[in-house]
Design a protein around this nucleic acid. Structure first.
Length: 563
RNA sequence: CGCGGGGUAGAGCAGUGGCAGCUCGUCAGGCUCAUAACCUGGAGGUCGUCCGUUCGAAUCGGACCCCCGCAACCA
């Protein structure tokens, strides 16, 4: 990873509900760890995302509540910003898909695809409700299964007999929302000609076989090998980015274009490009330095439900621009996070709300735990007993205790006189090794393993302390005790740097405790490495308090009972 | 036969033909500067099931069972 620049793209939260631990594990936290790490390495790193505001589910939710879609998203957007603030997610820009800039960029992307021959128009039959005067996606249509005659089945598949239901085969279809009857009606839409882009997309994917995670590559290539199909990019809906149909020749316009909008999947991914442009405009930068510069690597963070959109469709949209845009370099995709062994779902009532849980336990504890159970290659599970054990044993008992025992020993027994001592070569080697290993793992987006190395490093500190017994040396050979604590302080200072990507609040608290300025990433300066800290730089605070607070049995009970 | 992932100690995982391991938890003893960590020792496995290949299988082949994601209108 010797690139000059990095663009970090995190998936866009869909703003029809509150943020929960699944969103945190899926992209907020891994993308933030990576961004903070890159910046500390001195790499110019831009980190963009925003609220995904369009699509039918938003309009349905708004209807249900008797407000407009615009009002609904305006209510949720500030809530997402609160989460970002609370967890310290270090975005360069967190915008939304309802900006004028996004609208303009989306339309340009469409027009380029059209100009380059990748857009076709096609008529098809879709369910339409006369009484509601609107088209309905299959997911909102129910009826009787034509095979087993089970009632209340979804339009595409019967859950009772398992058979696939073809368009128009459902008996007495009706709207799930209003129960009004629906009928098939013809409608015209634009499609992206993915069969035409298939070879280019496949070539792109094959070029990344060794770089991507094994399962990500397999899923992607498996999907492509089934043959890509034309994919609709417009909907009969009044909420979304308008179609710039006036810019097209008359015989290429779809009918009733004014009552249609771009399909949400099409405009949401374009957000990565539009957000970079918005950010660069606000900073007097050129977005091409990030999108056309081959030394700028693009990392994408998302959950597995988003895989094909980022490894197939979005690259296809970009290739079809013929503007030589950078394609995704590494899709950092995680599987799902369950809670107490079950899939997160509102109906099961096991959603763990991101805001509530951080209010109760602190963002650091949540960041630490989620990172330790990140579903990198298989599903992860949030378990309250495991949560308490992890926090108490690893974060508090091992890491926090090491920092605290060193600082209290230094303050209470030694710091009256400032001393300088030799760095033990074994300690120096260990510190350097740790930075190298953690750095390598973070570059490869192996966050669980990277955090494990930090834990091991703290264990090493504890072992070094115990083995050298400074409390005994204090009586017999005070100089020896000085040397041991000097070495331990170097480990503590290294932990302060290692914390920065994972638990930034703790890194800041430790800086304050030591009387040092907070770490401040500077382009071109690598701070993610060992730097000897002279003791004259340390000005310990008067009242030493432990970095992390131990969880009592009742803490978890109080939280789970309160939600 | 739609595509893909998975099943190994209480939990989470590593292990692709040669004595079944790691982290956490757990039990006993030691040490003690600290929110107590560390050290030493122990308990805990039918490696999903069955069949096969082999001197030897968690590992290779076959069949089956179970769990999960995707399946193009779930963002």
């Amino acid at each position: 990873m010797n690139s000059q620049k990095i663009l970090v793209c995190a998936a866009w939260p869909y703003v029809n509900g509150d943020i929960h631990i699944g969103h945190l594990a899926g992209y907020f936290i891994p993308a933030d760890i990576f961004t903070r790490f890159c910046r500390l390495k001195g790499i110019d790193t831009v980190f963009v995302s925003g609220s995904d505001c369009h699509g039918t589910p938003i309009t349905v939710e708004a209807d249900k509540r008797g407000i407009t879609a615009k009002e609904l998203v305006s209510e949720y957007i500030p809530k997402v910003h609160e989460i970002i603030e609370q967890y310290g997610i270090d975005y360069s820009l967190f915008t939304s898909t309802i900006t004028d800039n996004h609208k303009k960029v989306t339309q340009e992307v469409f027009l380029n695809l059209f100009k380059n021959g990748y857009i076709i128009k096609k008529k098809s039959q879709q369910y339409y409700s006369e009484s509601d005067n609107k088209f309905l996606p299959d997911r909102y249509v129910e009826g009787e299964c034509p095979f087993c005659h089970a009632k209340g089945q979804r339009a595409d598949q019967c859950e009772v007999c398992g058979r696939t239901i073809g368009l128009g085969e459902l008996i007495e279809p009706y709207s799930k929302l209003t129960k009004a009857p629906v009928t098939l009606k013809e409608t015209e839409h634009y499609f992206v000609d993915f069969p035409k882009l298939e070879n280019s997309i496949k070539e792109y994917v094959l070029n990344h076989e060794n770089a991507w995670k094994d399962w990500v590559f397999k899923e992607t290539i498996g999907f492509i090998n089934e043959g890509l199909q034309e994919r609709a990019i417009t909907r009969d809906l009044d909420w979304g980015v308008e179609i710039p149909v006036d810019e097209l020749p008359e015989n290429q316009r779809i009918e009733f274009a004014g009552s249609k909008r771009f399909y949400v999947w099409f405009d949401a991914v374009i957000g990565y490009l539009s957000a970079t442009i918005e950010y660069c405009n606000s900073k007097n930068l050129d977005y091409k330095d990030y999108w056309n510069n081959k030394d700028c690597l693009h990392y994408y963070f998302m959950g597995q439900d988003n895989l094909t959109f980022h490894t197939i469709f979005w690259p296809g949209q970009l290739i079809g621009q013929n503007l030589y845009y950078n394609l995704p370099y590494f899709p950092s995709i995680v599987k799902f996070l369950n809670a107490n062994g079950q899939k997160l779902s509102k109906s099961r009532g096991n959603i763990i709300d991101a805001k509530q849980v951080a209010n109760h336990f602190g963002a650091d504890a949540i960041r630490f735990y989620i990172t330790s159970i990140l579903p990198e290659n298989k599903e992860g599970n949030w378990d309250w007993t495991d949560f308490k054990n992890t926090i108490n044993a690893e974060l508090v008992g091992n890491i926090g205790n090491f920092v605290h025992r060193v600082l209290t020993f230094y303050k209470n027994k030694l710091s009256a006189e400032k001393f300088e001592a030799e760095l033990d070569s074994a300690v120096e080697t260990k510190i350097n090794e740790t930075f190298t290993v953690v750095s390598d793992l973070l570059e490869k987006n192996q966050f669980v393993a990277a955090l494990n190395e930090v834990k091991k490093f703290s264990t090493y500190g504890n072992q070094y302390f115990d083995y050298n017994k400074p409390w005994e040396k204090l009586k017999l050979a005070p100089q020896e005790a000085n040397k041991i604590i000097f070495n331990c302080l170097q480990i503590v200072n290294s932990l302060r740097i290692l914390f920065y990507p994972f638990i930034p609040e703790a890194s800041h608290r430790l800086s304050n405790t030591l009387g040092l300025t907070n770490l401040n990433p500077t382009p071109g300066t690598n701070q993610f490495q060992f730097t000897s800290l002279p003791l004259t730089d340390i000005n310990l605070v008067e009242n030493l308090v432990p970095l992390f607070k131990k969880l009592e049995e009742t803490d978890v009970e109080a939280f789970t009972a309160s939600v």
